[in-house]
């Protein structure tokens, strides 16, 4: 009806499942896809937040998973999903979902793992596998807001073709340093790191603790624990290390 606006709810207020429509689907890698969503009363999201997705089969069986929002606060809401071989939900989201399909979502959620421009830096972003997703949202947030907070992003993946958003990450220049480590296989001529993130790698790449950095660490639980422990050992303030642990290799 003319003049009627959809009521905007508070993003940190009461929450329930609602129906979203898939508006765009983008292939990021052979096993990773970004799904843009249209949500009628979307209150806006913050970089680092996630949303829950619920699928319901015709026989009533349902499955829920959480996915990080890949978008900055002023981007349309989108999630990036990695297909897991033994996954139940991710194969559906990465292979079957089409533009126009409906998905039940609940969100945005998560005020703990959030970066807002006013939070400052310098920022240390450490992502393992699909843990890069909320970190990419943070990078986009920084870019869109015109922030000049210096950033180091340390991104661990198995192979070059597993890197998500590579072109976008490589396009950041001013004040952003991207460090990749490819842990399983490297292309010919690779001069970057070739091992899993450990204490020594952190010591070589992370901001010195003296700069009072703000760290965001995301990925599989064991990755996050190793990195968080390593940063504490480097002198990082524990309260300035935000962590988000994904199950397995990051949602299913």
């Amino acid at each position: 009806m003319e003049g009627t606006a959809v009521p905007r709810r508070l993003s940190s207020g009461p929450l329930s499942w609602e129906v979203a429509t898939v508006t765009e689907v983008t292939s990021e890698t052979p096993t990773v896809r970004t799904i843009k969503l249209g949500v009628p009363s979307w209150p806006g999201h913050r970089a680092g937040q996630h949303l829950d997705v619920r699928l319901t089969a015709e026989d009533g069986y349902s499955a829920e998973r959480s996915y990080s929002i890949a978008a900055a606060a002023d981007d349309p809401v989108a999630i990036t999903v990695e297909r897991l071989d033994d996954g139940e939900v991710s194969p559906y989201l990465t292979e079957d979902v089409r533009v126009g399909d409906e998905l039940e979502i609940r969100g945005p959620v998560g005020g703990y793992f959030v970066w807002e421009t006013a939070d400052g830096g310098p920022l240390l972003l450490v992502g393992g596998g699909s843990g890069i997703v909320p970190l990419r949202a943070i990078l986009r947030q920084r870019e869109h807001s015109g922030s000049d907070v210096p950033v180091k992003l340390l991104y661990s993946a198995r192979t070059l073709s597993d890197l998500i958003y590579r072109d976008e990450l490589d396009s950041y220049h001013d004040g952003v340093e991207i460090i990749y480590t490819l842990t399983r296989e490297q292309p010919a001529g690779w001069t970057g790191y070739t091992r899993r993130v450990d204490q020594a790698l952190l010591a070589e790449t992370a901001w010195p603790a003296g700069k009072d950095p703000l760290a965001f660490v995301c990925g599989p639980t064991s990755f996050v624990e190793t990195v968080a422990g390593g940063l504490v050992a480097l002198g990082y303030e524990p309260g300035r290390i935000k962590t988000e642990r994904f199950g397995g290799t990051g949602g299913s």
């Binding site: 499942w17 129906v19 619920r54 699928l55 319901t56 089969a57 015709e58 026989d59 069986y61 349902s62 499955a63 033994d86 139940e88 559906y92 079957d96 399909d101 409906e102 998905l103 039940e104």
Partner: peptide, 30 residues
């Protein structure tokens, strides 16, 4: 809830085992 067309549980009842699977369950290899 909207039905997610094409979504189904990972495993169903294997042939010949229907009477071994209680209602509402699905069989897993894992």
């Amino acid at each position: 809830s909207p039905i997610s067309h094409g979504f189904h549980r990972r495993h169903t009842v294997p042939d010949g085992a229907a009477d071994r699977v209680p209602p509402g369950q699905y069989v897993t290899d894992g």
